[in-house]
């Protein structure tokens, strides 16, 4: 059981990091990024490919975050002046383009075969201790993400981005450039997402394009919305709740023998859909949030 809980903790921690990145973008700045999975994939592939070429882990993770942020740059420059919903569609499209590139450019990504045998830090410690150490690494990354968010939000810059979220025109009228601030936040959020991707790739030790589908983006959105957009704790709580729900439904199935595994899969997605509807309808501020949006 311990090994399983470690695994769930690791995956939950990675979700939390993803939720922190999105929360920074959407929760604090109002950017509708539907391309979370794209930056996640950039991080995962960057780190995996570098590690397999013998680059030390620290540099792999750093490169994953930096490259994911750099991928966000042109997209941000092009799209952050657009309407909110356009950004949503453009980022969704970007994620699909990127997935196609990963599938097609075999020379770099090994195409649909995926990349097996990605080294995992601490694997030398054995199964149990190594798993724990990796969980600690993920949680450390998560805490780093939290402290980054807290500092950023508390700074003058943080107050500026929240002002942009609430009233962009007012910010413009005092002579600040909202587009510039949005770009910075978009890139920082993408960097956190890329770091999460790297942690995921080294944890799973195998990545392939079919792991980077839009559904993951929506999971992260659900975490942020459930936890409460614009609250640091909200992202963590939302990710924890999501993981609990996804994993808990496995055990639920064990005690509900009259529900087949097929029906359970439907019920799982139905519950996610229903939660999205109910939260946006009745509790848009999320579980922890105060600000009505």
């Amino acid at each position: 059981m311990q090994g399983y809980l470690t695994a769930v903790g690791t995956v939950g921690g990675i979700y939390a990091l993803l939720a922190l990145g999105l929360n920074l973008q959407y929760g604090f700045t109002g950017l509708i990024n539907f391309g979370v999975v794209a930056f996640y994939a950039v991080g995962a592939y960057t780190s995996a490919l570098l590690a397999l070429r013998g680059v030390p882990f620290v540099l792999d993770f750093a490169a994953a975050a930096v490259l994911a942020a750099l991928f966000a740059w042109p997209l941000g420059v092009m799209c952050l002046r657009l309407r909110d919903d356009y950004l949503a569609i453009v980022t969704l499209a970007f994620a699909e383009i990127l997935r196609t590139v990963i599938v097609s450019e075999e020379w770099l990504t090994n195409g649909t075969r995926g990349i097996p045998g990605i080294p995992r830090p601490f694997s030398g410690l054995g199964a149990a201790a190594g798993g724990f150490a990796y969980l600690a690494l993920v949680l450390a990354a998560m805490l780093a993400g939290v402290s980054l968010t807290v500092r950023l939000v508390g700074s003058p810059f943080g107050r500026l981005i929240q002002a942009i979220r609430d009233d962009e025109d007012a910010v413009r009228s005092v002579g600040k450039s909202p587009a510039r601030c949005k770009l910075v936040v978009f890139m920082i959020g993408a960097g956190l997402t890329g770091l999460a991707g790297a942690l995921y790739a080294h944890y799973l030790t195998y990545i392939s394009p079919d792991q980077f589908v839009p559904l993951l983006t929506f999971y992260v959105w659900i975490a942020v919305i459930m936890g409460g957009a614009g609250r640091v704790g909200g992202a963590i709580a939302g990710a924890a709740l999501l993981t609990l729900f996804l994993e808990g439904s496995r055990f639920l199935r064990d005690v509900l023998p009259f529900v087949s595994e097929v029906q359970m899969a439907s019920l799982r997605l139905a519950a996610i859909g229903l939660m999205l509807i109910l939260f946006t309808l009745y509790r848009p501020q999320g579980l922890l949030g105060r600000v009505a949006r």
Binding site: I32, D85, A88, F218, W221, I225, S266, L267, R268, L269, A270, I272, G273, L274, M275, L276, I277, T280, L281
Partner: peptide, 13 residues
Amino acid sequence: LIASIGLAFLLRS
């Protein structure tokens, strides 16, 4: 928009 994504999942499931 978010609710419509939720509705999409709900309908399909």
